[in-house]
Design a protein around this nucleic acid. Sequence first.
DNA 1: CAGTGGTCTAGACCACTGA
DNA 2: CAGTGGTCTAGACCACTGA
Lengths: 235, 235
Amino acid sequence: MTAPLHGRIEKDLESRILSGALGPGDRLPTELELAAEYGCARMTVHKAVSRLAAAGLVERRRRAGTFVARPRLHSMVLDIPDLPAEVARRGQAYRWRSLERAILPAGAAQDGSLAIGTPAAALRLVGVHCADGRPIAHEERLVSLALVPDIGDARFDEEPPGTWLLRHVPWTEAETRISVAAAGGAIADWLAVPRHTPLLVVARRTWRGGEGITAVRQSFLGDTYELVARFGAGS
Amino acid sequence: MTAPLHGRIEKDLESRILSGALGPGDRLPTELELAAEYGCARMTVHKAVSRLAAAGLVERRRRAGTFVARPRLHSMVLDIPDLPAEVARRGQAYRWRSLERAILPAGAAQDGSLAIGTPAAALRLVGVHCADGRPIAHEERLVSLALVPDIGDARFDEEPPGTWLLRHVPWTEAETRISVAAAGGAIADWLAVPRHTPLLVVARRTWRGGEGITAVRQSFLGDTYELVARFGAGS
DNA sequence: CAGTGGTCTAGACCACTGA
DNA sequence: CAGTGGTCTAGACCACTGA
């Protein structure tokens, strides 16, 4: 029931900073002083202050002490939703419509605007994500057949390739680029919108141990999709 | 020079998981067993495994033990760049051009598509971000005069309001929504592009202790801007 | 070179929860 | 109800670095 002591110390120091009682550049008491103040061991204080440092509220320097950090640009956490789950969450029926499936020979997937960066052969998968029968996004994907040989046997009649990959292949690194584009002819047709309709383009590449697993470019209809990033709601 | 012991234990367990030696659902040794295995105190093991749990690689349950987590959709880290710094990094000259400055009476900034969610009076600031003299983004912002009274004295001749706020006001929570829109008349004119040009719209609200500080909507020219989120490069 | 934070120990008691 | 992880103690030694 009672919160841990290190958590209460952390919140207490945090409120001193956010209230302005401690301003940017101000020095906090030393760990020994705080331990005396709270009547606890130094390790307990250390844990509290270390978490504030990890959160970016203070900066610690040996010999010098702990100082309130200057307010700075935090990084935010971007949730990359699984599309079928996201559509279902909205109460709509999800469907994946496969348009193209081809095997690219070794070398063909190494470069270009959509590339997995390895010389391996790759599977190319193109399709459309639909919600309640309406297309909401066009997807073009390459998957390394060297790292994911099993995908040759997978059927993508119901489940999109991204969901299949998520369940079968662990990844360690990913990069997502978010940009905007006007719908070209083919994509405009598949999405059933006029040419030059604004699209939100999410391009993602994932790796496992430095080896490219997959590269995907998803083009969302602007009026049906939105990405949300948050900071601070969690802790 | 030698890495801390808890860090080496963490990396060791991590590699066991990423290599597949420990698969999803597998149980890790208990903290006491790991302490014996590494010949160290349980606290040291606890710190290592707790960090793996925070990173999402394992899940911990009392009495049951510690288990390798199922591969899941990781959240990614989105860098929210400071525009003047970002433009300078590209080797271009940044300039902020102020278009509008008005004080909204109490209540006017509480609701609507751009809102800080409090009944306080607010400052409304509109302007354009330029790189090498070319407009790259239109910005519309509300700032709470209750939480940021000093902003009434600030001049925004050279520095945009976002950079000023960053230096003066600490925040604890933020939410960013990324979407796409076709340029309307006024914004198209200010950005010197045809109407219906696709724009990347970044809408952000920030709070301090639950109180809304500012709300901003930035509309970027699609061909000059891109947001990047990464996972795994850091640790 | 002295004071700070970083790490680590060898215990202890407890909360939780699933066998 | 027994085993696990969560927390906390009261020390210790050390690395670093700025007064």
